[in-house]
Amino acid sequence: MNEIKENQTKSLIQVRNLSKTYKRGNEKIEVLKNLNLDINQGEFVSFMGPSGSGKTTLLNLLGGLDVPTSGSVRIGDAEITSLSGKQLTSWRARHVGFIFQLYNLIPVLTAFQNVELPLLLTKLSKQDRKKHVEAALSIVGLGNRMHHYPRQLSGGQEQRVAIARAIVSDPSFLLCDEPTGDLDRSSANEILDLLSRLIQEFSKTILMVTHDPIAAERSKKVLHLEKGVLIEAQNKD
């Protein structure tokens, strides 16, 4: 908690008293309970914990995909918990890159078109969009697979396209929901190497949910969630 106070002024992400409760019939399920968290720019943070501990819910709240029952999330200068749905949509497009376990690429679009998707929401010209997409795909090492469809790529390559799509609009931070969960060890390592590179070379902030201790090992900080409560923080510094 002392660390949180120290970092309060420079943290990219500040979570205060965050709670999320779902209703199932008459039953209330408290998924997150009074969570406090600070994450600095350029940090690589992993969230671990058993299924149902609230990891993905936390990620959804941080990414503005869901709204909390109470508490606040401040990211940079934006108090996202007070934004309207429309404002959140626009905020997400500018500030968050999402990476999913199952890649979630659009199957009828090529790698190039998938990566270009977030840029369609910007005012960039076609030429500029092309430059950005080519740069993103070359960062993930798929400059030569631009016109391949997802079905023509391996799982690892698909996830790299998804990473290119996540970074193409230069977001403030990346949210990764089990990015290696569907990959073999070798491909998983490639993805983790790539994420590490994004932090080292491009100072990206990465928040990753994982069940894989080896993947979590790559992050600077590992946070454990259990029954909606942050119970442990391992800081490798």
């Binding site: 429309k86 500018r94 979630n104 659009i106 998707l117």
Partner: peptide, 16 residues
Amino acid sequence: TNEIAVMKTLGFSGIR
């Protein structure tokens, strides 16, 4: 459904 959810995640508004 999945693709629409992904597009909305990426910032495509409901109206779009």
